[in-house]
Simulated assay, not measured.
Amino acid sequence: MSIPVVDFSAFSLSEQNVSDEQLQKLSRELKTAFTEVGFVFLKNTGIRQEEVDRVLELSKLFFLQPEEEKRPFSRKSFSVNANHGWVSMETERLNPRRPGDLKEAFNVSSFHPDIKWPSGPLKDFQQTQTGFFQHCQELSLRVLRVMALSLGLDPEVFLGAHRLIGTDQNGTTLRTLYYPAVNHDSVKDGQLRCGEHSDYGSITLLFSFSEGLQVRRRSGEFVSAPVVPGAVLINVADLMQRWTSDRFVSVLHRVLVPPAGDSSTRQSLAFFVQPDDEAVISCCDGSNKYPPVTGGGYLNERFNQSYGQS
C-alpha cells in the first residue's frame, strides 16, 4: 500500500480563486486516495511549518510539567464541554481490548469564556492553539468541498453539517499528542502507544514528522506510514464511511511501542473533524446501508468505548 501525495496548492488557504478544472483534478486525486487507501498526504496546503512547530513547542512545555500542574486542566473538568482538556497517561484506550495507551493528550474542543487555559510560561498557549484550530478548520472545509465534488454531490451535503465547528454544538477537536519515552520494564502485555482504531468523525488532519504510525492494508497487514516533510496526512473517518455508503474507507491505524533501547519521544497534532452534534448523518446515495445517526450521538458512543474502562 502506498499513500498518495497530492499537491493542494491550487486550493490552498492562500488561494481564493480556484478554477473548475483545478477542482476537478483535485477531486479525482482525492477520490482515488479515499476509495482505495483511506489516507492521502496533502502538500502546499497553506498551513506554515513554523505555525505547526510553535504549537508543538508550547504543547511539549505543557506535557513536561509536573502532573499537579496539569491536573487542573483535566478532561471532564469543564462543565461547558466534557471533552476539552488534558488526558493523562493510560487514561484512554483506543483499542478497548488493550491496556491504556502510553500517551498524553490535550484536547482543544471549546472556546467558551468559562474555559481555563494554561498561563505563566504558557501564556501564549490559548492564542496559539486557537489560531491553529482556525486554520485547520478552513483547510478541512476546503477538503470536504473537494470530497463532495468527487462523488458528484452538492458540497452543501458535507459543508452544511459542519457549520458549527468551533462551538460547543460541534465536537471537532484539535489534539496535541505526546508519547513520552517508554520504560519497557513496566509495559503491560499488549500495551501500545496508541491502540488500533479508526477515527470517529468525518476526516482527520494529522501533522507528524517522526515515524511510528502504522496503517492497516486491506489484506489486514499493518504497514508503517512514511514521513513526508511539510505535508498533512488526511484520513477518512467512520461517519464519512457511513455517509458515503462505504465508497470512502475509514482505515484502522496505530502507534507501536518502540523497540527496547529506543528512548525517543514522539509528538503529533491531530485535528478531528466532526459533524455538528444535531446533524443527521444518513447515506448520501439514498440507501439504507447504515441507519441514520447524529454527529453528537455517535461521538459519545465512541467516547464511552475509549474511556469507559479507564
Rank of each mutant, 00 (worst) to 15 (best):
S140L: 09
L149G: 01
K103T: 00
L122Q: 12
G171Q: 08
L174N: 13
S150P: 03
D189W: 10
F132E: 06
N183L: 08
D168N: 15
P96Q: 13
A161M: 07
P113Y: 07
K116I: 11
R97A: 11
D154W: 04
P99D: 07
L174W: 09
L102W: 09
Q129R: 10
R93K: 13
F125H: 10
L164D: 09
P99T: 13
D154T: 12
P99K: 11
I115C: 05
P118E: 15
G131C: 04
L94V: 00
D168T: 04
S140V: 01
S198H: 11
L144A: 01
L139Y: 03
D114C: 11
F132I: 15
G166L: 07
Y178F: 12
R175E: 06
H197Y: 03
V143C: 09
R93N: 10
D124H: 12
F106L: 12
A105E: 11
S119P: 11
G120P: 09
R175Q: 11
S140Y: 06
Y178I: 00
H197R: 06
K103Q: 02
G201N: 09
F158P: 13
D124G: 09
Y179I: 04
F133S: 04
L177R: 13
Q137A: 04
D189R: 15
Q137I: 02
N95D: 12
C194Y: 03
R98E: 05
G190M: 09
E196I: 08
T130P: 05
F106I: 13
F133E: 08
Y200E: 04
S119E: 14
L144T: 10
L94N: 05
T173W: 07
R145Y: 07
R142H: 05
L149K: 00
L139G: 09
A181I: 05
M147G: 01
N170S: 14
Q137G: 02
P96C: 12
P121V: 04
Q126R: 15
Q169M: 11
L122S: 14
S198C: 09
Q129W: 12
S109D: 03
L174P: 04
S198T: 06
E156H: 05
L151I: 12
T172D: 06
P99E: 06
Q127Y: 14
L153N: 01
A148R: 00
G100E: 01
I115S: 02
L205M: 04
Q126N: 15
L122V: 10
T172H: 02
L144I: 14
T176R: 15
P155Y: 01
